[in-house]
Design a protein around this nucleic acid. Sequence first.
DNA 1: TGCGGCTATTG
DNA 2: CACAATAGCCGCAG
Length: 584
Amino acid sequence: MDADAAVDELRALGIEPGDLVALVVGDASLSVAVPTWATNWPVAPADVVGRIDRELGPRWVLWSQATAGALAGHGVRLTRSWDAAAVHRLLFGGWRADPGRIWARLHDLPTADLPAPDPIDLFHQTDDGDPAGPLREDGYLDPEWIDGGWASSPDRMAAWAGVLADVARLQLAAVGDVSARDERPMALRTAYAESTAELLCAELTVGGLPMDRAAMEGRISAYVGPRPRSPQEAVELRDARDEEVLRHVPEGVRFDLRSPSQVRSMLRMVGVEVPDTRAWRLERLRDAHPLVDALLAWRKAERVQTTFGYGWLDENLGPDGRFRGEWSGSDGAAGRMTASAGLHNMPADLRGGVVAEPGHVFVRADLGQIEPRVLAAVSGDRALAAASQADDLYAPVAAELGVDRAIAKVAVLGAMYGQTTGEGGRALAGLRRSYPVAMAYLDAADRAAQVGHDLRTYGGRLVRTGSAALGEPGGPDSIGDREARSQAAARGRYGRNAMVQGAAAELFKVWAVTVRARGRDLDAQVVLCLHDELLVHVPDEHAGAAAAMVDDALQEAAARWAPDRSVRFLSDTAVIPTWADAKG
DNA sequence: TGCGGCTATTG
DNA sequence: CACAATAGCCGCAG
């Protein structure tokens, strides 16, 4: 068996572009399956998969991002996928999406306690006869198969691909049901986009973010000084930093600056009384005592030292100048992308260390006022959609309400977050009058979440608001009435916001995977996704074309995601050498 | 050792 | 300190 024969075998099945083909990858072989057929090919997976992708163009069914990550490690990028874990999260909410859970849900089996691997098995050799298949008699998948046993023989790998093909068939039907039942024909498109976003995440994890080690070390040293040459020197430097604060309190008194309660006591000793020691509160008391200023400076440095210091760099920046975190396509309440290693909360001061490689630049683009525009689209509010035609959406809203732009902005944001007090709260009545459809959409989500009714975003993602996500509505009867009301209100804000943030995340991912696809011919590589911002790494000679492509991709994505085109979406796009460089 | 609280950073 | 997230350290329970 060679790659040619493998491609021919699949071609003979009549696979057309976009057809679902399940893929399971082992060390030295791979298995593929369609609903009526499964096989194992003893060939190097990277060679064959890349060719099939180019020549036949299937939509690869994968258990999860891990398969794409293994292939990306060999330089193979799949074009499109059906990611069973991503589709499971879309259909059923939550985060956990291992094969056992996916299978059980599709077969209406309880998932409260899924079968776990029998610890006794660890002391037995896997039986070579292997009469048992992946399915147990009770209908669950065999946990031993899930836990790596699928890879122990060619027959098992083929059977495992067959299970995956079956999963995709059932998920496809379930997605169709969501579209029909909830009148959201979006769900299939969302499944495609979320799946392909998982491919992008695998590539982000493997490929990393270009970073200049010297430039980043320079920025770190501005906060915490040069890299200590020994553990002993590190301790001395730390003590010296502490002393810069402690010298403002009487001799002989020691406080642990890392303990909030001790910091509060320390401040009280110099006559500064605060309910907590958060920076925004201390900011206003800088003049009260020199200790406050020293403490705030210490906090900044301590933050860099512990979270974004030399250790952070050493752990995550490879010798190839790529900084790597792990990427998830859909985490948390509303299905945003997340990243580890601080990629999503790196202090702005350090961004200058994110530098394009020689002969390359970044195209940086961020969506303007994405959440109110998304609210206009998902709610179908014609007045808000009209406001979205302006470059600055808040300007026409302010004019309509007869208030300052700043007030209009906090009012709109407050409505989406569930704020009821302050200036935003006061302007709420005006919003209800002028944008009743959008406000009713938010209120409906709020009310549903308060009583624990699950929600679905515009794209069809289930947002759980019941016991699994937020604790039982109504809660244990030990809590007081006041606290119960407060919890209900918090649940309402959660649901209200999840509908907007979640839909925004869906649009963003359609944009990101469109850029990924259209960037292929320009050697343009998406290297960072940040909720409403894309960073694309591209050779110098393609910079202009890539910037135009990113803007075009947004219009293409918006047209696919919200086909009625009534809402305008904008991106602010710039070609820059480092991430810190000014936007346009 | 695990977990809630506090804190800081980002969108 | 409204919504979301990651991450580190402290203090406490078990």
